[in-house]
Design a protein around this nucleic acid. Structure first.
Ligand code: SF4
Ligand code: SF4
Lengths: 153, 153
DNA sequence: CTAAATAGGACCGTTCAAGTCGCATATTCG
DNA sequence: CGAATATGCGACTTGAACGGTCCTATTTAG
């Protein structure tokens, strides 16, 4: 429950790697997969998905591969998850989805929807750049980035 | 992904219902199940779990049932989820869990662990009382409860 | 004693994540 | 041109977890 898909996980890793190597024009799915030991074919499909949603730009053929479509600072973890796993819903009901027989009688869906939004907000406030840059945010005090999230239950 | 278990969902509903009816000494699993249309047997096991972790107090026999072990204000959504679904981890690796071959080479597990803690913090800041009382927090301005969550990536 | 309740184990069907395979298409290079 | 790389994409398999049911034992009020 409340667990991130490994696909999304892999996607974040790949994007982070790309963000860390801005000089290279493009990296192939295999390169990225080898860098971490991710199944190449699987990563390929993930990257294709990210390409289709506009987070990456691809180039086929020799010396082809993928590159970030935007600055790493402007790609949020939320977008990545959304692209890979589809709409972000914490419950089985929340607006847009089907499937929960007791949606009418349920009295906690509104509060949970708010929790959903809060978590989405957290994810939106995290960019690929945040993951890539500075390994130890704790080790370098005075420069921590602080995102304030307001929770209204 | 990132989806709440229906069991946790049901658990929250049940606790909320109990919080809304503090006068009654105890409500049976069947009562609670009927109130929302939840499969009774399933709810029963959930309530048993909540009892074993100390969130509820149970009483067998006729006129038996369940009651909150503490004030609704002192039971967080986090505890409920923890009790029902086990340890809260957003990734497949994060400390305590097994299963992720590439934990050593992975470079995003620390940042994700921090995200994990942030979300856990959000959940911890929500009590059963918050779910139960006041249906429309938006409809009653000036009294919104605001929980500040600091996000440090 | 009996009916209503909790307690808990065994079991099962469906769904979904994770990964694999195969093939088509694009592009570069010799 | 044609071979070598690459992306693009759909079908498929496997395994685990979720949601749910059933059955039995035990407690307890009336
Ligand atoms: S309607 Fe209620 S029970 Fe059904 S998924 Fe939404 S929150 Fe959970
Ligand atoms: S180690 Fe990295 S890839 Fe494996 S689960 Fe943790 S974060 Fe995801």
């Amino acid at each position: 429950m409340l667990k991130l898909t490994k696909k999304a996980d892999y996607g974040l890793m790949a994007l982070k790697y790309l963000a860390e190597h801005p000089e290279t024009p493009a990296l192939s799915a295999k390169d990225l997969a080898d860098a971490y030991g991710i199944p190449a074919q699987l990563l390929a499909k993930i990257l294709q998905r990210l390409t289709k949603t506009g987070l990456l730009r691809s180039h086929a053929g020799m010396n082809g591969g993928y590159a970030l479509a935007r600055d790493a600072r402007q790609i949020s973890a939320y977008e990545v998850i959304l692209a890979i796993d589809g709409p972000f819903f914490i419950t089985s009901c929340t607006r847009g989805a089907k499937s929960c027989e007791l949606t009418p009688s349920c009295t906690i869906k509104e509060p949970l929807a708010r929790v959903n939004d809060t978590i989405a907000g957290v994810l939106k406030s995290i960019s690929i750049h945040d993951l890539a840059d500075r390994e130890h945010s704790d080790a370098a005090p005075g420069r921590e980035r602080q995102g304030l999230v307001t929770l209204t239950v």
